[in-house]
Design a protein around this nucleic acid. Structure first.
Lengths: 152, 152
DNA sequence: TATTTTGTTCAGTATTGACTAAACTATTTG
DNA sequence: CAAATAGTTTAGTCAATACTGAACAAAATA
């Protein structure tokens, strides 16, 4: 299979490593984004990506748990086929959103601790909370708008 | 200083570890979010957080490079004082934004490779590109709106 | 200038985590 | 039921990196 595609897959994996994915999980994800046919079984993944069965098994499980890929059952066969889950990219945005509220909550927890502190001391946390609250709120709206637009 | 605050700092560090910061850098950041006074020198940080001078030196450098904290010069003293950089949280959002275009570009690069592939094969990358393009665009606007709102 | 204070750099340690080979389990097919 | 096939789990290896103590450098103070 084309050399260029594998290079792309590597770049893809590198990019998502920055987002916290193990390199080899990123490679699986990247390959599943471009491969033909879009469903691939474990053996194929191992062969193309030059990884061990064990790694494929672990990493596909991870990716399934993250709702980024899904197992496609094949009737009459126990083989596991995997493919990019439709809506994967929305899912990532949604996960990002969840991250925002984590940080917002963190700021609020801090503010509770500093309840009796002078405003000057609280100000840093307030800025943090306000910003995350704003983006959480607005992104929620944006997200819905995107979904709706895609429906049309 | 209060036990509870240190626990908060730990939680803070843990949260930002998920975002790729070393634990001890997260602790510094967390402490600088709540400490009084808001400027702290290296020795104070080392003492409160129970870290070595070496670690403080390395991690403050990292945080300064990331534009999350800044050195505050004290005239007549060589001591380095650090504080949360005003606008730190906007900065983090801006960095997140930059991340989005990275992914969008990635999708576009892939599409170029699949230029001659049938639409069915291109579709996954197209969805990815569209989504990131949408959010990059819209977040840009949101961001400006936030800045303006804060100015008022 | 000598001493003390402050911070950085370096070398080494310890921990984490990605990855593999091999053993194991389960399922399908002969 | 036996043999082959597919996948998971486990134990162990290797590499990356966070962190420390100690040596070092630079600057302030005596």
């Amino acid at each position: 299979m084309p050399e260029e595609l594998l290079h792309f897959v590597e770049e893809f994996a590198l990019a998502y490593e920055g987002a916290g994915l193990p390199r080899s999980a990123g490679r699986i994800l990247g390959w599943l984004m471009v491969c033909d046919p879009p469903e691939q079984n474990a053996a194929q993944l191992a062969q193309v990506l030059g990884a061990s069965k064990a790694s494929i098994s672990t990493m596909t499980r991870l990716l399934v748990q993250m709702h980024l890929i899904e197992r496609v059952p094949r009737r009459g066969s126990r083989q596991a086929y995997f493919r990019i889950r439709p809506g994967t990219w929305s899912e990532r945005v949604r996960q990002g959103l969840a991250g925002l509220s984590l940080y917002k909550n963190l700021a609020e927890k801090g503010l509770k601790l500093l309840e009796k502190a002078p405003p000057a001391q609280r100000q840093r946390l307030e800025e943090m909370r306000d910003l995350y609250a704003f983006f959480e709120e607005e992104l929620q709206g944006l997200f819905e708008r995107y979904q709706r637009r895609k429906g049309a």
